[in-house]
Amino acid sequence: MWEQLSGQMFFIGFFGLAAVWFGIVVFRTYSMVRSALALLFSQTALGAMFLSMQAEFLGVLQIMMMATEMSIMAIFMVMFMMDPGGLGKMEMTHQKRLSLGAGFVSFITAVVVAVFVDWGPVVSLAPDAGQQTVDLGLELLGRSMLIFETAGITILTAMIAATAVAIKPISRSNKHGS
C-alpha cells in the first residue's frame, strides 16, 4: 500500500488534514483575530491542495483571495463587536446544538454528493497551467457567467450594506459643528 502512495497523494492528504485542523481551531480559540487567522490558514491549506492537484491558477487565486477576504472579515468583526482591536477574549461559538446539527447535516450532504454524483472520467493527464487558465476563463465568461456575476454582486451588496450599517449617522446638529 505504501508503495502506491505518491508524493502528490501525500501532500493532498497533508494539506487536507491541515485545512480540517485549522477549521477546528477557528472554534476552539477565544479571540476574534486568532479565529480569523485560523480560518485563513485553513483556506490557504485548501489553496495548497489545489496546487497539489496541479490546478495552479485556482491554487494561487485561492491563496491570494483568502488573505484579503479573511482580513476583511476580521476588520468587519472588529467594527461590529464590543472588543477594541480584537485584544479581548470572546466565545467564538453560538447556538451550539443548532450549529452542531447544521454542521453534521452539511457534512453528510457533502459526503453523499461527493460519493454518489457521477463526476465523469478522471483526466489521466492534467493540461498545463496556461491551458487551464484559458479553459477557466472561457468557462467563467461562458455558461458559468451568470452564477459568478450573481455571487459577486451579492457579496458586494452585502459588504456595502454592512459598511452602511456600521457608519454612525451624522446628526443635524453635529453637521453644523455645534
Partner: peptide, 10 residues
C-alpha cells in the same frame, strides 16, 4: 510560473 503575475500579487 504560468500564473506568475497573479502569484506576485498573492
Amino acid at each position: 510560473l504560468a500564473t506568475g503575475a497573479l502569484f506576485i500579487n498573492a
